[in-house]
């Protein structure tokens, strides 16, 4: 579903992605972790073209990014992207947030889009917040609206860029619960997160990145109980200490 082959990327002189080769199968859930600045966010931002790659191949849903034949705008409708900072539209209500792209991009009739928008918001536990503006919602609620906004496009792939990093601790689990629900419906997911409980529960694989390279991949069980490299051991000892 997603395939990186020898992907490199630089920000100026900084080599942010180093020879990445990685593939994600349909319906697979892959968690990406690693220290800050290791290139995790850049990696998943490349998948929907928020960042462009310098060399190598990146094939998403059968289409090679950067090819003339690949229509990025169309491809993006198949890829949901959840941001760390939510990025809800502040001038739109929760329901308008989740129906905007279905109506204008997918060209679904308004009544139909609103019906499925309400259904999706109810599913993420926000049935009483249809008409609330983002500024009236808590961080956890905003992020759940953001996830519903992606799901309303009926995507084939969902990408999460540190979805709980901007949240107060008590709101993290309500967002993770929604994400577990998405994973259980067999969505293809790539999740940048340090939430190890989430990784153990739903991920088939954990990818550990450091300094722009994929250092280690394994099942959550292998990775957490028996990390193979010094760098992953050092990383895990830091995040699991508390």
């Amino acid at each position: 579903m997603i395939e990186f082959r020898g992907v490199n990327k630089w920000f100026g002189a900084l080599h942010v992605l180093k020879d990445i080769t990685l593939s994600v199968e349909p319906r697979e859930v892959v968690v990406v972790c690693g220290p800050s600045g290791s290139g995790k966010s850049t990696l998943i931002r490349c998948i929907n073209g928020l960042e462009t790659i310098k060399d190598g191949d990146l094939v998403v849903d059968g289409q090679r990014l950067g090819d003339r034949a690949t229509n990025m705008t169309e491809l993006r409708t198949e890829i949901g992207f959840v941001f760390q900072a939510f990025n809800l539209y502040p001038h739109k209500t929760a329901l308008e947030n989740v129906t905007l792209a279905p109506i204008h991009v997918r060209k679904i009739a308004r009544a139909e889009a609103e019906a499925s928008g309400r259904e999706m918001l109810a599913k993420v536990g926000l049935a009483d917040k249809f008409n609330a503006y983002p500024s009236e919602l808590s961080g956890g609620q905003q992020q759940r609206v953001a996830i519903a906004r992606c799901l309303c496009m009926r995507p084939k792939i969902m990408l999460f860029d540190e979805p709980t990093s901007a949240l107060d601790p008590e709101m993290i689990s309500e967002v993770l619960d929604v994400m577990v629900g998405v994973a259980e419906e067999r969505m293809t997911m790539m999740v940048v997160t340090h939430e190890m409980g989430f990784a153990r529960k739903v991920a088939q694989r954990v990818v550990f990145m450091d300094a722009g390279a994929v250092v280690e991949t394994g099942t959550p069980e292998e990775f957490f109980s028996d990390p193979k490299t010094d760098r992953s051991r050092a990383f895990l000892s830091k995040i699991l200490r508390h």
Binding site: R76, G80, F83, A85, Y89, H91, L100
Partner: peptide, 30 residues
Amino acid sequence: ISRGQVEAGIASGMTYSQRMRLVILPQAIR
């Protein structure tokens, strides 16, 4: 208007003119 708003529009498959019309301008006018 923050870069995040632009990216949210891009990520949901909006074209440049859709992002302008639906996301950026309504906020910029304010």
